[in-house]
Design a protein around this nucleic acid. Structure first.
Length: 950
DNA sequence: GAGTTTGAAACT
DNA sequence: CAGTTTCAAACTC
């Protein structure tokens, strides 16, 4: 992304801003329900953006670099959905401007108002719900020139309204709205801009056409389209570097008092005019990577790829978004990147504006938003004031989204539902950028805090006053999931995510990093797990949160101590992991200010000895290691390629591999873990500094969750310090990433990528065009969903133990053909488990008992099926034999013998150590007898079998 | 380090 | 669901 940014800067920065003119209004063709959830709508929109161009044919042409015009579609009651831009057909407003033309040139703006708009009385000029001028207003309509009616607006502007007959207008404009009338607003030559509504300034000058459909039935006061909030910039006079100045100082702008210009890393510029509610969309290339304050009062905001959330705590009235033609496609594989225009989606007050290329803007009203938010303020520009504003900016490699959320009582980000805030009066603009190591931690923290905790959010809102909230995500630099998307995407993960009840304060930073740390899945961890239910409610919640299946119900949690935020943050959680003796699964609930009571499920280990408690984070629901083996379900950590090591536990093995220094560190960590466990075991949890949060990518993976207490992106944030933490961890790297991916074509958004498959962000990887990071959260979420759609268990561990005590098996089995399952190509082999009957491998030599047997010779003797059957048969036979000799009676008898020894020694006051030894000896004797019996039986049976034949 | 092999994932 | 293609890791040289 960095590379493209530079190119863009050089190319686009100098270009004058194309002026926007309203050309025509599209006749709504169909009424689509806006029942889509926000996430769905976003998905569709994303899909549209990412993939095909808008349905509008004009887009295609517009997307071409040569095309100079800006087209704006304002859709009503529609949100971009899966169907794509077809939604835009209804109630769309297309604004076409001479994109590359110098601003000095007179601009003609044609505006078409599609149906659902209230017919404008001859005496009233109204766009949307905003009345520009009325006859009733004294002196508003000054005179009539031919078919033009001169209207003086409240602001003293003079515009001419021309009634025109459909068909006389441009074909595009009139098409679809035969019944609609067209009013042409012609601004006198002396007027540089037309003020269409209070707070809305049309910078472009010249002709304004307003086609008003005659459909009275559809004309609902609230359904009217308001242009307020959309203001084409007057010009390309201002370059990216000076854009802020232009916005603030431009006399042509009626409202802009304070404009903040935010420039993304990709060179995209977002201007936020705090003076007014209007939204400025400017499709001009940007160059810089920094955001410059628009005015003295404006707060400087820097949006670098590494930047986190940025919250503009000031009333925002105007937002200017400049887009630039992506020079490079998202994938980067397309050679003709320049020909691939980016798209910008602006969602405003239930409307969405999709800008294709720098010159194409589409506004699509969000039905849901419109319905819910419109008319709440007595018809005062309801549409613009309410709803969400999402702006998707073309990036060098991706798309940027900006969402302006209404300032709701509760933080918009916290809203899990797709409901759109109905409160229109106050808006909060928050530019959220993924936090990065070098980002703006303060801002990001603020945003996250607001989203995460109601209290914080409310507080933030108070501070912000009348502001809009803008959540911006960009593919080029960073991506912040739109709230709706978050709700959408994270439903599964939310359960786990919501559980993240990290303090809004610095704790978040510390927690997040830890969350991203890898928690290597332990071998047979489930065997040792003992589920403890601390509270019935908790357990119920846990079950509730797991819609995605049993495994999905097991979110990963990272337990970190709150000790010095930085310290805790930098301290990999894995360090504390200890897999030993008794691992208890603890389901606990905690309540955070921001979220519902959260349920935490984690394992802690308590050795049988008196060494104190050890603990480990649990979570079986998500692959936790980054190795391919882990990705494939191997829960153990494969540190080296040595296969078939002595049957020591992975932990032992790893510990063994540690150097002295590492071991000491390990011990130190263990001590810390113990301490934490003790603290956690204290009855009074509130006093415990221990923080339990879901392990990072809880989300991904198919984990169904409740409403996210916090924005998904917050939860998904890769630990800022994780990367810095590097690979070394206290446990000698057992929990560190074994390897970094090297993906080149999958953008790390497919299961090919180990990182992605493990639900992790790429860190320190050598991958190319990596999208598996917070900057591309949208794409990442989409990819996750896509994977889950294909395979709901895609992110579940592939290797599990069916039952406690059972051997781990590959859930799906391998399918090796040529490796004999004796190379790491084989997932089973890589996981150090024998192939099972589930496997479809050919020539398998990865047998449990005889891995060394050369099965090649057998290949010719028996077909694949034969091998499978044989394998299954042997397995079953072994099981049967075990059942024959280890009957319940035998086992019971053995146990009774052992107990009897205990009782006997207790009476004799024998030392515990001796008692244990005696008991073990007793068991050994019993086993010996059983084996002897089995042998005898077998010999007897063989003799019996041989007798008949002879 | 480049090229090949391999099998899961993705696609058709 | 099967066959094919894509992909990235594992492996070989």
């Amino acid at each position: 992304m960095d590379t493209s940014g530079g190119n863009l800067d050089s190319l686009d920065d100098t270009e004058p801003l194309p002026e926007l003119s309203f050309e025509d209004f599209l006749e709504p063709t169909s009424e689509k329900s806006s029942q889509h959830m926000e996430i769905e709508a976003l998905d569709s929109e994303e899909d549209n953006i990412g993939g095909e161009d808008l349905a509008d044919p004009a887009n295609d042409s517009l997307n071409t670099p040569q095309f100079k015009k800006n087209v704006v579609h304002i859709l009503e009651d529609k949100r971009l959905n899966s169907s794509g831009l077809t939604v835009l057909k209804s109630h769309a407003i297309k604004m076409v401007t001479a994109g590359g033309t110098p601003p000095a040139k007179a601009q003609v703006t044609d505006v078409k108002i599609l149906n659902k708009l209230k017919p404008i009385p001859s005496s009233t000029l109204k766009i949307g719900s905003t009345t520009i001028a009325t006859k009733s207003t004294p002196g508003s309509i000054t005179k009539t020139l031919g078919n033009l009616t001169q209207i003086r607006t409240k602001d003293g502007q003079v515009i001419f309204v021309q009634k025109s007959v459909p068909g006389t207008q441009s074909s595009t404009a009139v098409t679809g709205s035969p019944s609609g009338g067209i009013r042409r607003l012609v601004a006198p030559s002396g007027i540089q801009k037309a003020v269409l509504s209070k707070g809305v300034t049309m910078a472009s000058t010249g002709l304004v056409k307003a086609a008003v459909p005659a459909k009275a039935s559809t004309s609902v006061p609230g359904s009217a389209i308001t242009l307020k909030g959309i203001q084409p910039l007057a010009g390309g006079t201002a370059k990216a570097s000076t854009s802020s100045t232009t916005a603030t100082t431009s006399p042509s702008l009626a409202q802009p008092n304070k404009i903040q210009v935010v420039r993304t890393a990709d060179g995209k510029i977002i201007k936020i005019n705090q003076a007014g509610p209007s939204l400025l969309v400017n499709a001009k290339q940007g160059t810089g990577t920094t955001v410059t304050p628009g005015g003295s009062a404006a707060t400087s905001v820097k949006l670098s790829p590494s930047t986190g959330n940025v919250v503009l705590n000031k009333p925002v009235g105007q937002v200017v978004v400049r887009t630039e033609t992506p020079v490079k496609t998202a994938t980067g594989s397309v050679a003709s990147a320049s020909a691939t225009p980016g798209k910008m989606l602006v969602q405003s007050g239930g409307k969405q504006i999709l800008v294709s290329n720098k010159n194409i803007i589409k506004l699509s009203p969000n039905a849901s938003a419109t319905s819910s938010t419109t008319h709440t303020t007595g018809g005062q520009t309801p549409s613009t004031s309410s709803g969400l504003h999402a702006i998707q900016l073309p990036g060098k490699g991706g798309i940027q989204y900006v969402r302006v959320l209404n300032n709701n009582k509760s933080a918009a980000g916290t809203s899990a539902t797709a409901s759109i805030p109905k409160t229109v009066q106050t808006q909060k603009i928050t530019v959220v950028r993924p936090p990065a190591a070098t980002g703006v931690p303060a801002t990001s923290t603020t945003t996250s805090a607001a989203a995460a905790s109601p209290a914080a959010a409310s507080k933030a809102n108070l501070a912000m006053g009348n502001t809009n909230k803008i959540v911006m995500r960009s593919m080029g630099g960073s991506i912040v999931p739109l709230p709706s998307v978050q709700t959408l995407v994270s439903k599964r993960a939310l359960g786990a995510i919501s559980n993240a009840s990290k303090p809004a304060s610095a704790a978040s930073s510390s927690a997040t990093p830890s969350a991203s740390q890898e928690l290597p899945r332990k071998h047979r961890l489930t065997d040792l797990n003992v589920q403890l239910k601390q509270s019935a409610s908790v357990s119920s919640e846990a079950s509730d949160s797991s819609d995605a299946g049993p495994e999905a119900k097991k979110p990963r949690y990272v337990i970190t101590m709150q000790q010095g935020s930085q310290k805790a943050a930098s301290q990999p959680v894995q360090k504390l992991i200890n897999r030993t003796a008794n691992v208890q699964r603890v389901v606990s609930s905690s309540t955070s200010p921001s979220s519902n009571s959260t349920k935490k499920i984690y394992n802690y280990v308590q050795p049988t000895g008196s060494n104190g408690a050890k603990y480990m984070i649990c979570n079986s629901g998500v692959p936790q290691s980054s190795t391919s083996a882990m990705r494939r379900g191997y829960t153990g950590y494969v540190e080296n390629k040595t296969r078939r090591p002595p049957p020591i536990s992975p932990q032992q093995h790893r510990f063994k591999q540690m150097g002295p220094q590492q071991q000491s560190k390990h011990q130190q960590l263990q001590a810390q873990a113990k301490q934490r466990i003790r603290q956690q075991q204290l009855p009074t949890e509130q006093s415990t500094p221990i923080k339990v949060e879901p392990k990072l990518p809880t989300l991904p993976p198919g984990v169904k969750a409740n409403v996210p207490a916090k924005p998904l992106f917050e939860v998904l944030k890769p630990p800022a310090t994780a990367a810095a933490a590097g690979a070394v961890d206290p446990l000698g790297g057992m929990t560190s990433r074994r390897k970094h991916c090297n993906c080149s074509r999958s953008q790390c958004l497919k299961l090919y990528c180990d990182c992605f498959a493990n639900g992790e962000f790429c860190q320190d990887c050598t991958c190319k065009d990596c999208f598996n990071n917070l900057d591309y959260e949208v794409e990442r979420e989409r990819a996750i969903r896509s994977c889950l759609d294909r395979n709901p268990s895609a992110f579940k561990p592939k290797i599990t133990a069916p039952n406690s005590g059972d051997m781990r098996l590959h859930n799906k089995g391998c399918n090796c053909k040529r490796s004999g399952c004796l190379k790491n190509y084989c997932e089973c082999y890589e996981a150090k488990i024998p192939c099972s009957s589930i496997c479809k491998c050919v020539g398998c030599r990865n047998m449990e008992d005889r891995p060394d047997v050369d099965m090649d010779s057998l290949d010719g003797l028996m077909g694949v099926e034969g091998q499978k059957k044989d394998k299954a048969k042997n397995k079953q036979l072994n099981e049967n034999r075990a059942n024959i000799y280890f009957t319940d009676d035998v086992i019971e008898a053995t146990i009774m013998c052992m107990i009897s020894r205990i009782v006997m020694h207790e009476k004799q006051n024998v030392a515990v150590e001796d008692m244990e030894r005696e008991v073990m000896e007793e068991m050994g004797e019993s086993l010996t007898q059983i084996i002897a019996f089995a042998k005898e039986k077998q010999e007897t049976s063989q003799i019996d079998e041989s007798k008949p034949s002879s």
